[in-house]
């Protein structure tokens, strides 16, 4: 990281920051902080709590990356982004990684020149309706008024779904989740549609969640994952393998509870040893310390722990693992081997 001549004084004042184009990994190390783009507030995924601490599932990924790179899970600057600002923030170098339940699509990957490093949540767009309407399938929604939270792929999926089923609808695009919810509860729209996880988290905050049903149809594939700038493969590798480390850790039964024991000395399972750095030089290859994965896992636990703590069935959001179970349990989580 270097101070440019023009911005020297401003850098000192703290309103400008230098970004060397050499590599994001070196920048982050030099800065001592990871700049991580998150949503402006979606309970369960990324939202500030009453004390202003960010918490949630996406936040957990950020913290794991920070722990892997810097050894400190708190060395993260969370940059709230909207649907509009998120891509510019990443492209211009304001943030190092965007973990803002962003759907991995072809055009974002190719045309907008970003690199999705993996999927941390397999989602799909669903519908919520009041129980009293007696709707049991999304195919019965002809003529309904639909509240949409703008800024995601939701609008496109919705248009496609209704068009392909030859139905009409009235879209009501709403900027924030809280306002969409208010419209929905007041009956200004019949249906609220967004990612199924978002619906569950929204319903959890209702006064009487039982009065509302989630329809069985999931009308789209929404693989949500962290993304980085195109062309910086080293940094992309770091984020990708940090995410994979969390997933593999669950698969191998490594959790924040037993990791201290497991990493104390090389054990019987060679893959665990390689993951935790007691064997091999995987960390060095990434340009990180040998125990990078251990730190990442200790930051908030493995994938299962992050899931259970933030969005799992014991939380108000109450999501089942579903597609997001390990491949061994019939889910889609399948981390490449650490070898």
């Amino acid at each position: 990281m270097k101070k440019s001549v023009l911005f020297g004084a401003m850098t000192v004042a703290g309103v400008a920051a230098g970004v060397a184009s050499a590599g994001t990994l070196d920048d982050v190390k030099a800065r001592g902080k990871l700049n991580c783009g998150v949503t402006t507030g979606l309970v369960g995924f990324a939202a500030p709590d009453a004390n202003g601490e960010w918490e949630g599932f996406d936040v957990g990924v950020c913290r794991a990356v920070a722990a892997a790179v810097l050894g400190d899970a708190t060395a993260v600057e969370f940059v709230p982004t909207t649907g509009k600002t998120r891509f510019t923030a990443l492209a211009s170098g304001e943030i190092d990684v965007l973990a803002r339940n962003t759907t991995w699509t072809f055009s974002r990957d190719v045309d907008l020149k970003f690199e999705f490093v993996g999927v941390n949540y397999y989602d799909g767009q669903g519908f919520m309706v009041p129980k009293e309407l007696g709707v049991s399938s999304a195919k019965e929604l002809d003529g309904a008024t639909v509240c949409i939270q703008t800024g995601t792929t939701t609008e496109l999926n919705l248009a496609d779904f209704f068009r392909s089923n030859n139905m009409s609808y009235e879209p009501v695009p709403i900027e924030t989740n809280a306002e969409a919810q208010q419209q929905y509860l007041a009956g200004a729209c019949d249906v609220y549609t967004t990612d199924a996880s978002g619906l569950a988290s929204t319903r959890a905050t209702f006064e009487t969640p039982a009065d509302h049903v989630l329809l069985p149809e999931i009308v789209s594939k929404e693989p949500l994952g962290p993304l980085v700038r195109h062309g910086d493969s080293e940094w992309g590798d770091v984020v990708r393998w940090t995410l994979n480390a969390l997933i593999t850790a669950e698969e191998l039964g490594v959790s924040s509870a037993n990791i201290a024991d497991m990493s104390a000395a090389a054990g019987d399972n060679p893959e665990i040893n390689r993951l935790l750095g007691t064997e091999g030089t995987l960390g060095e290859m990434l340009g990180l310390e040998a125990d990078w994965a251990k730190k990442a896992i200790m930051a908030g636990g493995n994938y299962a722990e992050l899931f259970e703590k933030n969005i799992g069935e014991t939380t108000p959001i109450g999501l089942a693992r579903g597609l997001n179970a390990q491949w061994t349990d019939g889910g889609l989580l399948y981390s490449p081997p650490f070898r």
């Binding site: 496109l156 248009a159 879209p171």
Partner: peptide, 15 residues
């Protein structure tokens, strides 16, 4: 465009 608009005075659909 791929999206629908509710309030409109001219013909428009998601195509």
């Amino acid at each position: 465009s791929g999206y629908d608009i509710n309030q409109r005075l001219i013909e428009y659909d998601s195509q």
